[in-house]
Protein backbone atom coordinates (compact mmCIF):
# COMPACT_ATOMS: atom_id res chain seq x y z
CA UNK A 1 0.00 0.00 0.00
CA UNK A 2 1.20 3.44 -0.88
CA UNK A 3 0.88 6.62 1.19
CA UNK A 4 -2.43 7.51 -0.45
CA UNK A 5 -3.86 4.14 0.46
CA UNK A 6 -2.87 4.61 4.10
CA UNK A 7 -4.56 8.00 4.18
CA UNK A 8 -7.72 6.38 2.85
CA UNK A 9 -7.46 3.62 5.44
CA UNK A 10 -7.06 6.22 8.21
CA UNK A 11 -10.10 8.06 6.91
CA UNK A 12 -12.07 4.85 6.80
CA UNK A 13 -11.14 4.02 10.38
CA UNK A 14 -12.06 7.53 11.47
CA UNK A 15 -15.54 7.02 10.06
CA UNK A 16 -16.18 4.44 12.78
CA UNK A 17 -16.14 7.07 15.55
CA UNK A 18 -17.86 9.78 13.54
CA UNK A 19 -21.61 8.95 13.91
CA UNK A 20 -22.25 10.80 17.22
CA UNK A 21 -21.30 14.01 15.41
CA UNK A 22 -23.38 13.42 12.30
CA UNK A 23 -26.82 14.68 11.37
CA UNK A 24 -29.27 12.10 10.02
CA UNK A 25 -28.75 13.50 6.57
CA UNK A 26 -24.96 13.20 6.66
CA UNK A 27 -25.24 9.74 8.14
CA UNK A 28 -27.32 8.72 5.14
CA UNK A 29 -24.92 10.30 2.64
CA UNK A 30 -21.95 8.49 4.17
CA UNK A 31 -23.87 5.22 4.24
CA UNK A 32 -24.56 5.64 0.50
CA UNK A 33 -20.93 6.48 -0.14
CA UNK A 34 -19.84 3.37 1.76
CA UNK A 35 -22.24 1.29 -0.32
CA UNK A 36 -20.74 2.66 -3.52
CA UNK A 37 -17.22 2.16 -2.13
CA UNK A 38 -17.93 -1.50 -1.40
CA UNK A 39 -19.13 -2.02 -4.98
CA UNK A 40 -16.14 -0.19 -6.45
CA UNK A 41 -13.71 -2.18 -4.30
CA UNK A 42 -15.37 -5.41 -5.42
CA UNK A 43 -15.07 -4.42 -9.06
CA UNK A 44 -11.48 -3.36 -8.48
CA UNK A 45 -10.47 -6.93 -7.68
CA UNK A 46 -11.76 -7.96 -11.07
CA UNK A 47 -11.05 -4.96 -13.29
CA UNK A 48 -8.16 -3.40 -11.43
CA UNK A 49 -6.15 -6.50 -10.67
CA UNK A 50 -7.42 -9.12 -13.12
CA UNK A 51 -8.18 -6.86 -16.07
CA UNK A 52 -11.75 -7.93 -16.71
CA UNK A 53 -14.44 -5.23 -16.70
CA UNK A 54 -17.66 -6.74 -15.35
CA UNK A 55 -19.96 -4.06 -16.66
CA UNK A 56 -22.95 -5.82 -15.16
CA UNK A 57 -21.52 -6.68 -11.75
CA UNK A 58 -24.63 -5.10 -10.25
CA UNK A 59 -26.35 -8.38 -11.26
CA UNK A 60 -24.94 -9.80 -8.04
CA UNK A 61 -26.10 -6.78 -6.07
CA UNK A 62 -29.62 -7.64 -7.20
CA UNK A 63 -29.23 -11.34 -6.52
CA UNK A 64 -27.87 -10.72 -3.03
CA UNK A 65 -30.62 -8.24 -2.28
CA UNK A 66 -33.44 -10.39 -3.57
CA UNK A 67 -32.30 -13.62 -1.93
CA UNK A 68 -31.95 -11.79 1.39
CA UNK A 69 -35.37 -10.18 1.03
CA UNK A 70 -37.20 -13.32 -0.10
CA UNK A 71 -35.73 -15.39 2.71
CA UNK A 72 -36.70 -12.78 5.30
CA UNK A 73 -40.19 -12.37 3.98
CA UNK A 74 -41.20 -15.91 2.95
CA UNK A 75 -39.18 -17.99 5.38
CA UNK A 76 -38.99 -15.40 8.15
CA UNK A 77 -35.26 -15.97 8.47
CA UNK A 78 -33.48 -13.49 10.73
CA UNK A 79 -31.60 -10.82 8.80
CA UNK A 80 -28.04 -12.03 9.55
CA UNK A 81 -28.83 -15.52 8.30
CA UNK A 82 -30.70 -14.22 5.26
CA UNK A 83 -27.79 -11.89 4.44
CA UNK A 84 -25.34 -14.76 4.72
CA UNK A 85 -27.47 -16.85 2.34
CA UNK A 86 -27.83 -13.95 -0.09
CA UNK A 87 -24.07 -13.40 -0.10
CA UNK A 88 -23.26 -17.07 -0.55
CA UNK A 89 -25.86 -17.50 -3.27
CA UNK A 90 -24.34 -14.60 -5.24
CA UNK A 91 -20.95 -16.22 -4.88
CA UNK A 92 -22.26 -19.60 -5.98
CA UNK A 93 -23.92 -18.13 -9.06
CA UNK A 94 -20.65 -16.40 -9.95
CA UNK A 95 -18.72 -19.61 -9.42
CA UNK A 96 -20.98 -21.41 -11.88
CA UNK A 97 -20.98 -18.85 -14.66
CA UNK A 98 -17.37 -17.65 -14.37
CA UNK A 99 -15.80 -20.45 -16.43
CA UNK A 100 -17.81 -19.84 -19.63
CA UNK A 101 -18.11 -16.07 -19.20
CA UNK A 102 -14.47 -15.44 -18.43
CA UNK A 103 -13.36 -17.02 -21.66
CA UNK A 104 -14.59 -13.85 -23.35
CA UNK A 105 -12.37 -10.82 -23.74
CA UNK A 106 -12.80 -7.08 -23.24
CA UNK A 107 -16.13 -5.71 -24.44
CA UNK A 108 -17.59 -9.15 -25.12
CA UNK A 109 -17.06 -9.94 -21.47
CA UNK A 110 -18.38 -6.55 -20.39
CA UNK A 111 -21.55 -6.83 -22.45
CA UNK A 112 -22.19 -10.45 -21.43
CA UNK A 113 -22.24 -9.50 -17.78
CA UNK A 114 -24.52 -6.56 -18.61
CA UNK A 115 -26.89 -8.94 -20.42
CA UNK A 116 -26.87 -11.15 -17.34
CA UNK A 117 -27.74 -8.20 -15.14
CA UNK A 118 -30.65 -7.09 -17.32
CA UNK A 119 -31.86 -10.67 -17.79
CA UNK A 120 -31.94 -11.32 -14.05
CA UNK A 121 -33.82 -8.06 -13.57
CA UNK A 122 -36.42 -9.19 -16.10
CA UNK A 123 -36.61 -12.63 -14.54
CA UNK A 124 -37.25 -11.19 -11.10
CA UNK A 125 -39.89 -8.88 -12.57
CA UNK A 126 -41.74 -11.90 -13.92
CA UNK A 127 -41.54 -14.31 -10.99
CA UNK A 128 -44.16 -14.47 -8.28
CA UNK A 129 -41.84 -15.35 -5.42
CA UNK A 130 -39.96 -12.08 -5.96
CA UNK A 131 -43.12 -10.00 -6.06
CA UNK A 132 -42.90 -9.33 -9.79
CA UNK A 133 -42.57 -5.74 -10.96
CA UNK A 134 -44.11 -4.53 -7.67
CA UNK A 135 -41.14 -5.75 -5.67
CA UNK A 136 -40.90 -6.67 -2.01
CA UNK A 137 -41.58 -4.72 1.17
CA UNK A 138 -39.46 -5.60 4.16
CA UNK A 139 -40.19 -4.80 7.79
CA UNK A 140 -38.48 -1.65 9.03
CA UNK A 141 -35.54 -2.34 11.30
CA UNK A 142 -36.41 -1.33 14.89
CA UNK A 143 -33.65 -3.07 16.83
CA UNK A 144 -30.87 -1.48 18.88
CA UNK A 145 -28.91 1.27 17.18
CA UNK A 146 -31.61 2.19 14.73
CA UNK A 147 -30.48 3.02 11.22
CA UNK A 148 -26.93 3.46 12.44
CA UNK A 149 -26.69 -0.31 12.17
CA UNK A 150 -26.64 -0.01 8.36
CA UNK A 151 -23.93 2.62 8.53
CA UNK A 152 -21.80 0.15 10.45
CA UNK A 153 -22.73 -2.80 8.24
CA UNK A 154 -21.62 -0.96 5.11
CA UNK A 155 -18.59 0.35 6.96
CA UNK A 156 -17.57 -3.19 7.93
CA UNK A 157 -18.14 -4.50 4.41
CA UNK A 158 -16.10 -1.67 2.92
CA UNK A 159 -13.29 -2.26 5.39
CA UNK A 160 -13.27 -5.99 4.61
CA UNK A 161 -13.29 -5.27 0.88
CA UNK A 162 -10.47 -2.77 1.39
CA UNK A 163 -8.38 -5.36 3.25
CA UNK A 164 -9.03 -7.94 0.53
CA UNK A 165 -7.80 -5.42 -2.04
CA UNK A 166 -4.74 -4.73 0.09
CA UNK A 167 -4.11 -8.46 0.28
CA UNK A 168 -4.44 -8.83 -3.49
CA UNK A 169 -2.04 -5.93 -3.95
CA UNK A 170 0.74 -7.64 -2.01
CA UNK A 171 0.20 -11.40 -2.04
CA UNK A 172 1.22 -14.14 -4.45
CA UNK A 173 -2.51 -14.60 -5.06
CA UNK A 174 -2.50 -11.04 -6.34
CA UNK A 175 0.54 -11.74 -8.53
CA UNK A 176 -1.46 -14.41 -10.32
CA UNK A 177 -4.32 -12.00 -10.95
CA UNK A 178 -1.98 -9.25 -12.11
CA UNK A 179 -0.15 -11.67 -14.40
CA UNK A 180 -3.51 -12.49 -16.01
CA UNK A 181 -4.26 -8.78 -16.37
CA UNK A 182 -0.91 -8.11 -18.00
CA UNK A 183 -0.80 -11.09 -20.36
CA UNK A 184 -3.03 -14.08 -19.98
CA UNK A 185 -1.20 -16.30 -22.46
CA UNK A 186 2.14 -15.63 -20.85
CA UNK A 187 0.66 -16.28 -17.40
CA UNK A 188 -0.61 -19.66 -18.54
CA UNK A 189 2.71 -20.73 -19.98
CA UNK A 190 4.38 -19.77 -16.71
CA UNK A 191 2.28 -22.09 -14.57
CA UNK A 192 -0.64 -19.88 -13.56
CA UNK A 193 -3.94 -21.76 -13.65
CA UNK A 194 -5.72 -18.85 -15.27
CA UNK A 195 -9.21 -20.36 -15.20
CA UNK A 196 -8.95 -21.00 -11.46
CA UNK A 197 -7.75 -17.50 -10.65
CA UNK A 198 -10.19 -15.76 -12.95
CA UNK A 199 -13.00 -17.71 -11.33
CA UNK A 200 -11.72 -16.86 -7.86
CA UNK A 201 -11.50 -13.18 -8.74
CA UNK A 202 -14.99 -13.14 -10.25
CA UNK A 203 -16.45 -14.96 -7.26
CA UNK A 204 -14.80 -12.63 -4.75
CA UNK A 205 -16.27 -9.69 -6.63
CA UNK A 206 -19.72 -11.32 -6.54
CA UNK A 207 -19.54 -12.14 -2.81
CA UNK A 208 -18.81 -8.55 -1.83
CA UNK A 209 -21.32 -7.15 -4.32
CA UNK A 210 -24.01 -9.61 -3.21
CA UNK A 211 -23.47 -8.81 0.46
CA UNK A 212 -23.77 -5.13 -0.35
CA UNK A 213 -27.09 -5.80 -2.10
CA UNK A 214 -28.39 -7.75 0.89
CA UNK A 215 -27.60 -4.94 3.33
CA UNK A 216 -29.09 -2.41 0.92
CA UNK A 217 -32.37 -4.35 0.67
CA UNK A 218 -32.94 -4.24 4.43
CA UNK A 219 -31.74 -0.65 4.71
CA UNK A 220 -34.09 0.64 2.04
CA UNK A 221 -36.89 -1.82 3.09
CA UNK A 222 -38.46 -1.73 -0.36
CA UNK A 223 -36.84 -3.32 -3.40
CA UNK A 224 -38.00 -3.72 -6.97
CA UNK A 225 -36.32 -5.04 -10.15
CA UNK A 226 -35.51 -1.57 -11.47
CA UNK A 227 -33.67 -0.39 -8.39
CA UNK A 228 -31.82 -3.64 -7.69
CA UNK A 229 -30.58 -4.28 -11.23
CA UNK A 230 -30.04 -0.64 -12.17
CA UNK A 231 -27.44 -0.08 -14.93
CA UNK A 232 -26.96 3.47 -13.67
CA UNK A 233 -25.60 2.02 -10.44
CA UNK A 234 -23.04 0.04 -12.51
CA UNK A 235 -21.96 3.19 -14.25
CA UNK A 236 -21.74 5.19 -11.05
CA UNK A 237 -19.55 2.47 -9.61
CA UNK A 238 -17.26 2.56 -12.66
CA UNK A 239 -17.03 6.33 -12.50
CA UNK A 240 -16.07 6.15 -8.83
CA UNK A 241 -13.44 3.59 -9.72
CA UNK A 242 -12.06 5.62 -12.63
CA UNK A 243 -11.96 8.82 -10.62
CA UNK A 244 -10.19 7.19 -7.71
CA UNK A 245 -7.78 5.08 -9.72
CA UNK A 246 -8.26 1.58 -11.07
CA UNK A 247 -5.90 -0.98 -9.60
CA UNK A 248 -5.11 0.94 -6.43
CA UNK A 249 -6.32 -0.07 -2.98
CA UNK A 250 -7.52 3.29 -1.70
CA UNK A 251 -8.66 4.80 -4.99
CA UNK A 252 -12.08 3.17 -5.22
CA UNK A 253 -13.02 4.40 -1.74
CA UNK A 254 -11.83 7.94 -2.42
CA UNK A 255 -13.63 7.97 -5.77
CA UNK A 256 -16.87 6.73 -4.24
CA UNK A 257 -16.87 9.44 -1.58
CA UNK A 258 -16.06 12.22 -4.03
CA UNK A 259 -18.73 11.06 -6.46
CA UNK A 260 -21.34 10.65 -3.74
CA UNK A 261 -20.68 14.11 -2.31
CA UNK A 262 -20.75 15.73 -5.75
CA UNK A 263 -23.88 13.87 -6.66
CA UNK A 264 -25.60 14.70 -3.35
CA UNK A 265 -24.85 18.40 -3.62
CA UNK A 266 -26.17 18.40 -7.16
CA UNK A 267 -29.20 16.39 -6.14
CA UNK A 268 -29.96 18.94 -3.46
CA UNK A 269 -29.40 21.92 -5.78
CA UNK A 270 -30.92 20.80 -9.07
CA UNK A 271 -32.87 17.58 -8.70
CA UNK A 272 -34.32 17.83 -12.20
CA UNK A 273 -31.01 17.85 -14.03
CA UNK A 274 -29.33 15.27 -11.83
CA UNK A 275 -29.37 12.59 -14.53
CA UNK A 276 -28.24 15.05 -17.15
CA UNK A 277 -25.23 16.06 -15.08
CA UNK A 278 -24.39 12.46 -14.23
CA UNK A 279 -24.34 11.63 -17.93
CA UNK A 280 -22.16 14.61 -18.71
CA UNK A 281 -19.83 13.78 -15.83
CA UNK A 282 -19.33 10.25 -17.15
CA UNK A 283 -18.50 11.50 -20.63
CA UNK A 284 -16.06 14.07 -19.26
CA UNK A 285 -14.31 11.61 -16.99
CA UNK A 286 -13.69 9.15 -19.80
CA UNK A 287 -12.30 11.98 -21.92
CA UNK A 288 -10.08 13.30 -19.15
CA UNK A 289 -8.65 10.05 -17.79
CA UNK A 290 -5.55 9.37 -19.83
CA UNK A 291 -5.17 6.28 -21.93
CA UNK A 292 -4.03 3.18 -20.17
CA UNK A 293 -5.88 3.37 -16.90
CA UNK A 294 -3.60 0.77 -15.36
CA UNK A 295 -0.49 2.71 -16.16
CA UNK A 296 -1.24 5.65 -13.97
CA UNK A 297 0.61 4.60 -10.90
Amino acid sequence: MGRHDLVVLAGLLALSILPPFLTDYLERVITSALLLASLALAQNILLGYTGYPAFGSVAFFGVGGYVTAVLMKDLSLPFPLALLCGTLFSGLLALLIAPPVMRLKSHYFAITTLALQLALGELVANLEVTGGAQGINLPIYRGPGGYLIFYYLFWTLTLVAFLINAYVERSTFGYALKAIREDEVAAETLGVNTLLFKTASFTLMALITGCSGGIYAYWITYIDPTSMFDPVLSVKMFVALLMGGVGTVGGPVAGAFVLEVVSETLWGQFPRVHGLILGLLIVLIVLIIPKGIWRRR
Binding site: H107, V235, F238, R272, L278, G279, L281, I282
Partner: peptide
Amino acid sequence: NRVMNLEPFMVLILTFGLDIFIANALNL
Protein backbone atom coordinates in the same frame (compact mmCIF):
# COMPACT_ATOMS: atom_id res chain seq x y z
CA ASN B 1 -12.14 9.96 -32.21
CA ARG B 2 -10.64 10.74 -28.82
CA VAL B 3 -11.42 7.41 -27.25
CA MET B 4 -11.06 4.91 -30.08
CA ASN B 5 -7.59 3.87 -28.92
CA LEU B 6 -8.52 3.40 -25.28
CA GLU B 7 -9.53 0.12 -23.70
CA PRO B 8 -12.80 -0.87 -25.37
CA PHE B 9 -14.71 -0.83 -22.12
CA MET B 10 -13.93 2.87 -21.68
CA VAL B 11 -15.89 3.44 -24.86
CA LEU B 12 -18.73 1.44 -23.35
CA ILE B 13 -18.76 3.71 -20.34
CA LEU B 14 -18.54 6.82 -22.49
CA THR B 15 -21.47 5.82 -24.67
CA PHE B 16 -23.44 4.79 -21.61
CA GLY B 17 -22.87 8.28 -20.21
CA LEU B 18 -24.07 9.68 -23.51
CA ASP B 19 -27.15 7.45 -23.27
CA ILE B 20 -27.96 8.74 -19.79
CA PHE B 21 -27.42 12.29 -21.01
CA ILE B 22 -29.72 12.00 -24.03
CA ALA B 23 -32.45 10.18 -22.11
CA ASN B 24 -32.43 12.79 -19.35
CA ALA B 25 -32.33 15.67 -21.81
CA LEU B 26 -35.42 14.25 -23.53
CA ASN B 27 -37.01 13.72 -20.15
CA LEU B 28 -36.39 17.36 -19.28
